[in-house]
Design a protein around this nucleic acid. Structure first.
Lengths: 242, 242
DNA sequence: GGCCAATTATTGGTTGACCAAAAATCATAA
DNA sequence: TTATGATTTTTGGTCAACCAATAATTGGCC
């Protein structure tokens, strides 16, 4: 009976405006590099409040599509019409990250982070990673969950990689991962001791400055959850999203 | 004489507020999962307008750190204090992406995209990638730059990978890449015919469903720019940022 | 005493007005 | 005719007030 309630698509005003801006570009009214109409004019033209326009511009600014100069105007990035349209479309469809893609990408990033960390780690890095690991061990020894400490261990490795883009991207997908972990109750299945040993193996490889081993150890560590994600696939679509 | 003007650090009100929210968490006044004080209360407490608080919340929401429920309140993600602090710090320092990290990460993502595209591509994917390649060829044959068409080729491969997270991350770093390409004038050095051949090699591997070959072909394609990034390193810091 | 409805207070959402800075315009003088 | 400086206009930035929906409170009823 309630089945047909699932597909409600709330078109937030912001997304509508972003769509409108996109069509402005598609219709050739705005070319890459051009100045966008003033916020006022846009709000008037689209029949919405300026706040909405502002929010939309803000969002597109995060993704580098627009750039605002105070008291001057908002300008479109100069990367080309078609690419611009693709980018904007992507921003609009940003929510649909499925768990499988999420995990698949996480594995990729984490492996590379471990690889680079092994190559570039300083003694300070080793200290912080060790600290994170100790905190994790201490927490799990008392039987508690240690999601935070687990995360921190991985973050410290990302820092040791000396690649801030890699770290930023990991940060970006982390909340999604955590949300899915909680929803799918992945944590319950994990054996803390096993996780601890795997963490130690990763740390050891990083200490030994053995990139390949570090990457491999990270792959093993993430293998469980990776396989798990294969099995759930579309299960998440049946869950109630809050 | 103008040297000391370089270090101007414009502390936008938004970043200040994000910092304040972070310290609220650090001081234990707000715990993960808690409800944030109302926008009004926050604005009053911090002595700023509500718009600024709103903008800060919006930004933190993009990164999954906060979640706003209309007419109810804004809640902090439940991932843990330390991890939360790390995440927020990262949001604040998000701008400092250096070119080397950018390229290094791009290579990683693109190689994986090509790998997965070769595994999962449909005939439709091949068609769109081919189209993008044709457009690139046509444009370069006339001697023009074809940055957009180049980008589009890579985007279509990302789409063929069927991993939307991977695609999103590539989209996120693309503007940064483009900006740096333009600033550092990488494009000028590239040989269009060589690029075209490399693109064709990638496409061929994807058509043949040979993931390893596709990944390798992409690596070769990106090798030039990768090496270039090694040589510039800190050169960018001397440039004027606009 | 316990339950339910009307009321009140609080929340984020939305709007329009005002501000200062930058750009564009125009008038004036060389 | 050109250069220059005052003036007007336009811009995004900021703010305070209002709106509708929700949650908390209160009062009355059973």
């Amino acid at each position: 009976m309630l089945d047909n309630l699932q597909k409600i698509k709330i078109d937030k005003p912001v997304d509508k405006i972003i769509g409108q801006i996109k069509s402005l570009i598609s219709n050739g009214e705005i070319k890459p590099g051009d100045k966008l109409p003033s916020e006022r004019a846009l709000a008037d033209h689209l029949g919405v409040g300026r706040s909405h326009v502002r929010e939309a511009i803000l969002k597109l600014e995060f993704y580098g599509i627009l750039k605002t100069y105070p008291q001057n105007g908002t300008f479109v990035s100069g990367i080309g019409i078609v690419a611009l349209e693709e980018l904007i479309s992507d921003v609009l469809n940003l929510e649909e990250h499925d768990f499988k893609s999420l995990v698949e990408t996480r594995v990729l990033l984490e492996k590379q982070a471990a690889y680079l960390a092994a190559k570039r780690r300083t003694s300070e890095d080793i200290a912080s990673i060790s600290n994170a690991l100790s905190a994790y061990e201490k927490k799990t020894k008392t039987g508690q969950q240690a999601v935070e400490e687990d995360l921190l261990f991985h973050i410290k490795i990302a820092e040791a990689s000396k690649n801030n883009v890699l770290k930023s991207l990991m940060m970006i997908i982390t909340p999604d991962i955590v949300k899915n972990y909680i929803n799918l109750k992945v944590c319950d299945d994990l054996n803390f001791n096993k996780t601890l040993q795997e963490h130690q193996a990763i740390l050891e490889s990083i200490i030994n400055q053995d990139p390949e081993a570090a990457s491999a150890a990270m792959a093993i560590h993430l293998k469980d959850v990776s396989e798990f994600s294969e099995s759930v696939k579309d299960l998440q679509y049946e869950m109630i999203k809050k």
